[in-house]
Amino acid sequence: MKKEVTINVNGTSYTEEVEPRLLLVHFIRENLELTGTHIGCDTSHCGACTILLNGDSVKSCTIFTVQADGAEIATVEGMMQDGKYHPLQEAFKEYHGLQCGFCTPGMLMRAIDFLKHNPDPTEEEIRWGISSNLCRCTGYNNIVIAIEKAAEKMREVEVETVA
């Protein structure tokens, strides 16, 4: 019944036997114990479980682990490089882009993908770009500013991005 999968997460390859119905978010959180990826709903609306799957931001609560067999995944735990924050992490802290922190990992992963496709966005574009992710604390003002500022910095310096 179980199926073997090999998935690379944050640069490490994992081979495990999983039930076909195991959601990717549970594989990440429970099998790999990477609990930075959160679960906020069961309808793929809140985006707390957003990760990068082969570089694209996806909601890991609506993907089966077996669908990710052979894939490269990045989670929030993979953002820091050489002990240094990613510009998005730095900007979220600097511009108070988080409060309870629960939506933050998903928001960060979504922002990485968004800026990859649109490195110099307007405020309006950022708002639409993160409309896949709900935040109940910040009112989004400072998240938008943090993404703007991180984008500026990322345009100046080549950033070692995850995945």
């Binding site: 989670t75 929030v76 735990e77 820091m80 924050y85 802290k93 922190g101 933050t104």
Partner: peptide, 21 residues
């Protein structure tokens, strides 16, 4: 002051109830 809570949250190292195992 920048928030001291933020370091664990932006690294995905918060400890919410569903993280307790």
């Amino acid at each position: 002051l920048k928030r001291r809570e933020d370091d664990r949250f932006i690294q995905g190292k918060g400890n919410y109830v569903d993280d307790v195992k």
